[in-house]
């Protein structure tokens, strides 16, 4: 077992190397004077010196465009990354890691809550659809799932905003807090409620978009399990349909479900770029989008490496979860 995990870990590291190379190659697309343009203001105000600018150029491979030059800069950048130094953001003027850690928690909160909701709603619906295959319930739920995957997030957000924020006025339109309200130093509960109020619509959007996928996945796996021999044996033993479905069948469906949940890791910590921007929630996705649009190389590269690390970690966690949940895998 350990050998298998070690192999997967090595594969993960290899993949991360590859991803880092690809991401680094993005900087190749930058025109020669790109960094000059970006740092002009900082240079003038004295926040950066000429050496700093040259240092940056070297770091991002824009100083020496020969092959060895690029190789050297890549090595430098990579060694920085491994030390935990993701560079200094142009747009935010702070170390990238600092920006990430500041804004990641809101994104995590939104994503986490919507995942929980997706699971609570999607899994039971998927089970019921599988047990009643071809019934009207099954069709409705399947169509609903596909609609969820067909809606662009910004469109759904705009629709919900129009109906609930503007017309019905129940929820606030944008932002995390109500700017016009002033809270005293001890109004923790009120601050919390105010923030929660602002988060209802974004969480709703994320949940609606994702619940269809969970439901469809559950349904497909349940159907496969329900057609297997051991379910027939369970029925022959005299167990009620309910026991057969929820104890025997579900336990087997859990296996692929649990392993797929780890694939949600990048979404959990990576933020939802579009939805956060539309609702002006100051999360990591929002910050990353702004940085991307304004050409903030350090931030963008740092953020993408971060996402890649999350994805690979998710892969590894999936493998481990598989071993935990499926008794057949333990000994191999």
């Amino acid at each position: 077992m350990w050998k298998y995990l070690a192999k997967r870990l090595a594969l993960g590291v290899l993949i991360l190397f590859g991803v880092s190379i690809l991401i680094y190659m993005l900087t190749m697309l930058m025109p020669a004077d790109y960094i000059d343009n970006q740092t002009a203001a900082a240079l003038q105000s004295g926040a950066m010196t000429k050496e700093d600018v040259q240092h940056l150029k070297e770091l991002y491979g824009l100083a020496d465009k020969s092959f060895t030059g690029i190789l050297k800069s890549y090595a430098k950048w990579l060694s920085n990354v491994m030390k935990g130094n993701l560079g200094r953001s142009f747009v935010y003027g702070r170390p990238v890691t600092e920006v990430l850690s500041d804004y990641i928690w809101i994104s995590f909160l939104i994503a986490f809550i919507s995942y929980i909701l997706e699971i609570i709603i999607g899994i039971p619906m998927g089970i019921k659809a599988a047990v009643n295959q071809y019934s009207p319930y099954d069709y409705t739920v399947s169509v609903f799932a596909m609609m969820g995957a067909s809606l662009p997030s910004f469109f759904l957000s705009a629709l919900l905003m129009n109906v609930f924020a503007i017309r019905l006025g129940i929820f606030p339109l944008q932002g995390l807090t109500t700017a016009t309200k002033i809270f005293g130093p001890n109004d923790h509960l009120q601050i919390f409620l105010d923030k929660a109020w602002h988060l209802v619509l974004p969480i709703t959007v994320l949940t609606l978009l994702g619940v269809g996928g969970t439901m469809k996945f559950t349904r497909t796996n349940m159907l496969e399990v329900l057609n297997s021999d051991y379910i027939r044996t369970a029925r022959a033993k005299g167990l009620s349909e309910k026991t057969v479905t929820y104890k025997h069948a579900f336990r087997n469906t859990m296996i692929p479900l649990v392993t797929s949940l780890s694939g949600m890791l990048p979404g959990l910590f990576g933020g939802a770029m579009i939805t956060e921007t539309v609702f002006a929630i100051p999360g990591i996705g929002y910050m990353a989008l702004r940085a991307t649009q304004q050409g903030d190389i350090p931030f963008v590269m740092g953020y993408n490496m971060f996402l890649a690390i999350l994805t690979v970690s998710g892969m590894l966690i999936s493998d481990i979860m598989y071993m935990v949940v499926d008794p057949r895998v333990k000994l191999s």
């Binding site: 021999d229 051991y230 027939r232 044996t233 087997n252 296996i255 499926d326």
Partner: peptide, 8 residues
Amino acid sequence: MTSLNPVF
């Protein structure tokens, strides 16, 4: 081979 539930 397939008549017993593999997870129990």
